[in-house]
């Protein structure tokens, strides 16, 4: 729900301000790749209506966000290609593919794709964080969006602890990826919490 909320917040921000200054389209592209790799199972397995609906919403809303930022004026006119230039193709995609291949529990295409998607998701926030560090001053809605985008994985960790004790659920790759992902946010969260506490604008060091 937090993940969904972060997407809705971003959509709302783009529609309301008609600007995507401070938003990394490259992060959305990473997520689009994550979703396409992971949700291939839409074609051959059914878990629940909720699960299927969320997958479809995540994929379609993420592609819509990319479309808005890259191609749809007036939002696309505010997109700064030079600032949002983190080369995830080299730094994230390659390593995620290699890690996905060597750490997959089983060498099948869906399993390798799933594993690679977990590793890629764990670092997908990097383009966004690096963009914010260049700008330093973060708009309120952008701050909420990034905070919810980080918080959802933290709540997964709580759920994993519950599931481990309640059902003996084990998911080593998911857990490790989740810890890396949450760890990358800790720094941002700190500055976000401080700005909320003091009721000031979020300014990154």
């Amino acid at each position: 729900m937090l993940h969904l909320m972060s997407i809705l917040l971003l959509l709302w921000k783009l529609k309301k301000s008609k600007s995507c200054v401070g938003i990394s389209c490259r992060m959305q592209e990473c997520y689009a790749i994550v979703f396409c790799l992971r949700y291939l199972d839409l074609f051959y397995q059914f878990i629940s209506v909720y699960n299927t609906a969320m997958k479809v919403v995540f994929i379609s809303s993420t592609f819509y966000l990319i479309f808005l930022m890259r191609f749809q004026p007036p939002v696309s006119a505010t997109y700064d290609r030079t600032a949002d230039s983190f080369p995830y193709e080299q730094y994230l995609l390659g390593p995620a593919a290699v890690l996905g291949f060597i750490s997959a529990e089983e060498w099948s295409i869906p399993e390798i794709f799933w594993t690679a998607s977990i590793w890629l998701e764990s670092v997908s926030i990097l383009p966004q964080l690096i963009l914010l560090q260049q700008l330093r001053e973060v708009e309120n809605l952008t701050a909420e969006f990034v905070a919810t985008m980080g918080a959802y994985r933290f709540f997964y960790i709580l759920n994993w602890i519950y599931r481990y004790f309640a059902e003996g659920y084990v998911n080593w790759i998911g857990w490790l990826g989740g810890i890396v992902q949450t760890g990358l946010y800790v720094d941002f969260f700190y500055y976000y919490a401080m700005s909320k506490w003091y009721g000031q604008k979020l300014v990154l060091p």
């Binding site: 993940h3 992971r38 199972d41 397995q45 878990i47 699960n51 969320m54 997958k55 995540f58 529990e105 089983e106 099948s108 399993e111 799933w114 997964y156 998911n171 998911g174």
Partner: peptide
């Protein structure tokens, strides 16, 4: 086999 059940998380 857990994989037969598939990944049930998003």
């Amino acid at each position: 086999d857990a994989r037969l059940v598939g990944h049930d998380e998003l």
